[in-house]
Amino acid sequence: MKDYFPDKHCLLTLILLIILAEAIIWFASGRFIPEQFSILVTVIRIIAIAIGFIIGFIYFPLFFRTVRYTVTETEIIRTSGVFIKIYQSVQYSAIQYTTMISSPFSKISGFNFVVFFMFGGQLRLLFLARDDAEEIMKLAAHFSRKGE
């Protein structure tokens, strides 16, 4: 049995992306909304900053702290949830095929996702370090073959 956690680099990347989005909204609202609606500009900026702050500095850090992927000899368990805890367990025998999605520079950004496709749905393991994602894929393939 081995536990995997989301890559901490990914949290940093997400926060940087949120700050970038905030900056775009800040400048775009000032640039494209006419001057006579300056109150609207201020409201949009405040709402954007509030949402960005809540998501980037409260929700995501809590989310990353609660997510855990456990790989055992028979199943994969995903534990997650900030406000409501969710435990998902999938037997290797139910997995039909797997997909790994990697973004550019995923070693630095930590944007690696492993998706297990099984009867009636999917199990998504998000924001993994590249090495962890590859290891999980190998372990899942190994245990699946062992169980056949």
Binding site: T99, M100, A141
Partner: peptide, 13 residues
Amino acid sequence: VFIRVTTHVPLAN
């Protein structure tokens, strides 16, 4: 190209 998607399908499945 930028976002790489690798799909593994076991032949037995």
